[in-house]
Design a protein around this nucleic acid. Structure first.
Lengths: 233, 233
DNA sequence: CTCTCGCTTTGATCCAGATCAAGGCGAAGA
DNA sequence: TCTTCGCCTTGATCTGGATCAAAGCGAGAG
């Protein structure tokens, strides 16, 4: 139990109200499984039962396997993100690390049942779910109605917001995912991603440094290309 | 308050535990705005603030406006569905009736704050959110990785499950939405939807009767065409 | 420092679904 | 019953992004 105490503490600080009883905290701790996910290892975490996952550190992708050879990245998650890993249904889901990541896994039903004694915890879960839902809906818009360039621009803006470091008027991003992951997330191919990035580079909207480094030189220019409503004037 | 008592009662029966105090029920009732949405009228309900919506009767679509002339149907909702109508952000959202519909609208923040006194209500909300999220993720898979025929088949199966009437081995559906709505939901055009339906009709998988009537003659055959994992053998 | 393997970029061609263009046909009113 | 208007279907053509193909290039190993 010593090994997983550090990730659980981080989770505890974020999710639990200060006033939670020590005994109650221990019950949650007993539900938690702590895991270190590594990108090298194969399929690290699949879901026979619905789980609640907390990313203590690192970066992961939630992947749905539509069929052999066809996979869709449902979402990326980073440090301190909390989300529901659905059980396999019509499609199978798995969680894969993009870098070495520490995660905490709770069985969803048991967690919710336990949380039902403390409304503040349920409320936190509800708000996180609402955020997940909102992001998922944004993705729906992107996949349903946006062009390749718009999707790429939207993706970069989203990453800037979630893991970017502001540098004056610019934002620096270190992308933990490969071009393939981005493509599988946006419903495009790696070649198309690469081409869109080249276009943005050519337009001086971004710079790329090596495989992972991206510098957004103008968020405004990116937003104009992201297909959000601007020309509604 | 007399007018809206019937829709609220339906909501109350579904969401509240039997034991809820009458006084507490009244507080929720005071938050609720009851509306009748009509397809004829223009933009019936937009969202300056995040709302919780309950469909008492009828059928509605949640629409996101990516930009002028480009809209994406995020989801369809039917009787007894409860969901979050997000406030306008990068995209603007609106709720539009497909038929005459009675809906109940709560401001999300106030509702959640009030519900925080009763964990059972929060739990119900959380589970409904999880369902919305699951459906949204299914849509992500459809839009990201499925062909036009697979999307159409998935759509019909989803409708069969939600508003279909079993007729022996078949399922009868009365579609409340137009081809345009379906197209805007699946990220396709009306012509493509029409063509896919013709293909399914030609393959004897479905029959169509008039504009709205669909008879699924073989759910199995539809599932095979829906691009879920089956050929993983 | 150099090699090398796997990721990424760029180029050429192809195709599923969009777009453009006519007709059908069904529901509501006369 | 007939008309009419607005969906829906079907056909012809076009195109954005996929697929196929071939170099670049960068991080880790030796």
């Amino acid at each position: 139990m010593k090994i997983q105490s550090e990730p659980f503490d981080a989770f505890s600080r974020l999710v639990f109200p200060d006033a939670i009883a020590e005994q109650s905290r221990k019950r949650f701790a007993a539900l938690a499984k702590s895991r270190v996910l590594d990108p090298a290892r194969g399929k690290p975490l699949d879901a026979s039962v619905s789980s609640l996952v907390f990313i203590s550190s690192g970066a992961v992708k939630l992947v749905a396997h539509a069929s052999a050879e066809r996979e869709q990245v449902i979402a990326f998650y980073f440090s301190d993100d909390l989300f529901i890993l659905p059980e396999d249904g019509k499609h199978s889901f798995s969680l894969q690390a993009l870098q070495r990541s520490e995660v905490l896994i709770f069985p969803y039903e048991e967690f919710a049942a336990l949380a039902q004694k403390d409304c503040a915890i349920l409320r936190y879960l509800l708000d996180r779910s609402a955020l997940s839902l909102h992001r998922s809906r944004e993705k729906t818009i992107a996949l349903g109605r946006k062009t390749a360039l718009e999707r790429t621009a939207s993706f970069l803006l989203s990453m800037a917001e979630r893991i970017g470091r502001p540098r004056g008027g610019s934002v620096e991003i270190e992308l933990p995912m490969s071009r393939r992951d981005i493509a599988d997330s946006l419903g495009l191919t790696i070649e198309t991603i690469s081409r869109q990035l080249s276009i943005l580079r050519g337009d001086k909207v971004i710079e790329t440094h090596g495989r992972a480094g991206v510098l957004i030189r103008s968020c405004g220019a990116l937003e104009q290309r992201s297909g959000s409503l601007r020309d509604a004037a």
